[in-house]
Simulated assay, not measured.
Amino acid sequence: MNKTFLTSAPTSKWARGVTLVELMIALTLGTVLLIGVVQVFTSNQHTFRINDNVGRLQENARTALDYIGRDVRGAGGTSCLRIPENELADLAAGVRRTATVNVVANPPLLGGLALGEEIRGFDGGNYPVMGAVGDAVVGGTDGLRIGRPGDCGASLTGNLAPTNANIMLPASANACGFEDGQVFIISDCTSAVIFRGNLNNPNANQLTINHAMNLNTANREIAYDDSATVSSLVTRGFYISIRNGRRALVIDTGNGPNNPVLAENVENMQILYGVDQTGDLSADAFVNAGAVANWSRVVAAQINLLMASDPASNLIPAPQTYAWLADAALAPANVVAGDRRIYRTFSQTITLRNRAP
Score class of each variant (00 low, 15 high):
66 D>S: 14
246 R>N: 07
303 I>A: 00
65 L>D: 00
50 I>L: 15
147 G>E: 02
352 L>C: 05
284 D>E: 07
323 A>L: 09
82 R>Y: 11
42 T>N: 12
273 Y>K: 00
252 D>W: 03
285 A>N: 14
248 A>L: 06
62 R>L: 06
343 Y>S: 05
238 F>N: 02
52 D>L: 12
193 V>H: 02
125 G>L: 07
356 A>L: 13
152 C>Y: 14
338 G>N: 15
323 A>S: 14
7 T>V: 10
5 F>T: 12
255 N>C: 02
157 T>C: 05
306 L>G: 00
304 N>W: 02
35 I>T: 15
320 Q>H: 06
223 A>P: 08
122 F>G: 02
240 I>S: 00
254 G>N: 11
121 G>L: 08
268 N>E: 14
226 D>C: 01
19 T>K: 09
278 T>D: 15
81 L>N: 06
75 A>W: 03
193 V>D: 10
226 D>R: 13
36 G>F: 12
216 N>G: 13
37 V>S: 14
242 I>N: 13
159 N>K: 07
284 D>M: 05
90 D>N: 13
349 T>L: 00
17 G>F: 04
342 I>D: 08
116 G>T: 09
18 V>M: 15
311 P>W: 04
220 R>M: 07
26 A>I: 11
49 R>T: 04
307 M>G: 03
92 A>T: 04
244 N>L: 09
49 R>Q: 14
216 N>F: 12
67 Y>P: 00
145 R>S: 13
29 L>W: 09
350 I>M: 10
144 L>D: 04
310 D>K: 05
41 F>N: 13
263 A>C: 09
350 I>V: 15
104 V>D: 08
93 A>D: 13
195 F>E: 05
86 N>E: 12
26 A>F: 08
137 V>R: 07
55 G>F: 11
158 G>W: 04
209 I>E: 03
33 L>A: 15
8 S>F: 13
167 I>V: 15
287 V>N: 08
231 S>C: 00
315 L>P: 10
2 N>Q: 04
63 T>W: 03
134 G>W: 01
84 P>R: 01
164 N>V: 13
219 N>E: 04
51 N>Y: 11
159 N>L: 11
228 A>N: 05
84 P>V: 06
294 N>H: 12
188 D>M: 05
8 S>T: 06
226 D>Q: 13
246 R>C: 03
65 L>A: 00
269 M>W: 00
257 P>K: 04
3 K>C: 08
148 R>N: 11
251 I>P: 01
154 A>G: 11
2 N>M: 01
285 A>W: 02
295 W>Y: 05
234 V>M: 05
300 A>W: 02
64 A>C: 07
174 N>G: 04
305 L>H: 00
92 A>H: 04
7 T>G: 01
317 P>S: 14
317 P>Y: 06
269 M>K: 01
77 G>S: 06
293 A>N: 14
65 L>P: 00
120 R>W: 04
57 L>I: 14
280 D>P: 10
59 E>K: 05
230 V>S: 08
241 S>D: 08
195 F>L: 07
269 M>A: 10
160 L>A: 09
294 N>R: 12
115 L>D: 03
301 A>W: 06
96 R>F: 11
11 T>R: 09
254 G>T: 11
101 V>G: 05
332 P>L: 00
38 V>N: 09
346 F>E: 04
286 F>A: 01
173 A>F: 11
147 G>T: 03
94 G>A: 07
